[in-house]
Design a protein around this nucleic acid. Sequence first.
RNA 1: GCCGGUGUAGCUCAGGGGUAGAGCGCCUGACUGUGGAUCAGGAGGUCAUGGGUUCAAAUCCCAUCGCCGGUACCA
Length: 476
Amino acid sequence: MADTVEPRLSRGLRDLLPDQMLARQWMIDTIRGVYELYGFVPLGTPAIEYLDVLRGSAAGAETQQSIFTVQNPEKEQLGLRFDLTVPLARVIAQYRDLPRPFRRYQVSPVWRADKPGPGRFREFTQFDLDSVGVESEIADTEIIAGMCDTLSALRVGGYRVRYSSRGILNTLLAYAGIPAKLGADVFRVLDKLDKVGPQKVRLELTTGYVDSSGDPIAGVGLASEQVDKIERFLQIRSDDRREVVSQLRELFAGVEGADTEVGVVEKISNHLYALGYEDDRVSLDLSIARGLAYYTGPVFEAILLDAPEFGSVFGGGRYDDLVMRFLGEKVPATGASMGVDRLLAALIHLKRAGQQKSTAKVLITNMDAGLHEDYIAMTWELRRAGIPTELYLGSARGPGKQLKYADQWGIPIALLYGSNEKEKEIVTLKDMDAGRQRAEALANRQEWLDERPGQREVPRVDLVAAVRDMLGLIEH
RNA sequence: GCCGGUGUAGCUCAGGGGUAGAGCGCCUGACUGUGGAUCAGGAGGUCAUGGGUUCAAAUCCCAUCGCCGGUACCA
């Protein structure tokens, strides 16, 4: 016996079987609809980029260990993209004649060689939208409004988009007397507030601690009074954005630059009020920091109120310096990124995503080799009428197995046509779902057979109308 | 990285030194023109891998690997 290869996938990778792809495509189509309404344009970039492009300028390469490296025959240093923002920055720098603002969306897989966890994979899909070349806070407003419209279109139930800004956080550093160079560390720790709670955040900001698994966690080394000031800042919590703004002004009175930074989040808030995005959907939440170092202005993220355990499903912010790596010139940019897989998992959890297993609405069964021409004709007749139809091409001869096939793929209507039907110039249409429901009440097979639940005979000439009618009934 | 758990049929798992098990699923038939239920039959396993102990190892011991969970990191 020949050796066979074990069918398997490398860790962190998974297949998307048809039912998962159908749910995902519905979701992506819905989101795309929102952004095309907003006038964003699509962009595609390769999965593979030069490593120095991924890591930033060759000079200041940060160590980025979770990049998958790739080899080409020329032995160049290549890697798989880990997000869609860096390729966007490259495109902006490379195609100087692109009109700006450049407002694009992109839905593509990205790769990270991290340890996989529940709902975390090494290959996953992001849906990104960004406005490049706009300094105005209206661009940030538009991103937040788009996040709201997307979540509404997906019918996720309640959601909350929370935003703050790096400018506010930098003002906090000044207020608390924390050196600016500790900013990135402080923000990274603050970003964990929701997850680990205030006590651990305080420990991590000061001395560090040893976690439950015995792992030491380094502290940032702040003084207790500095953390007190951070906590005073974090105590400003209100569902009313106006209230947060006014308390911020009070707290930061006299701190240099505070008026400007508070002004930015206030303007965003006012635009959103004017557009009908009220406090129940968007809040100014000062605990939002975002872990990434490259944000420079407003930052935002969205959570689902009915599925908070899925965490942030949509997040982003302003990053005015990213394109600088390539151009040496500051290009303002703001955008958001959605974790397609995470949001889809949440939608499935909330039973908001479709349960469809097949695209076909009708299965034409194939019972009599002498009638092939009729089967083919009926199949195309339905297809040309816009009804997704599959002609059974497998080897099973009797209707039993073919109906089982329809059942397994969740095809809602089966069409039966043999010599009986041919003679009477009819077709038999079977509503598979009605039969399934009826089966629950019948214990005896003979009854089940005699009754032929969900079945209807219609004139052959009325095929298309009858199928439409039955689909209408099924989909009410 | 670190800590813990766990690997036995396609899936979920039981068993515990001496013949490899169940449920579900799958296939066949009862029922060659009707899915579900029922009944009867069938296919399917290197008990993760390598080594050790033993007359004998799926079972005990050691190592490795995989998977699961927690934790850290995440531009």
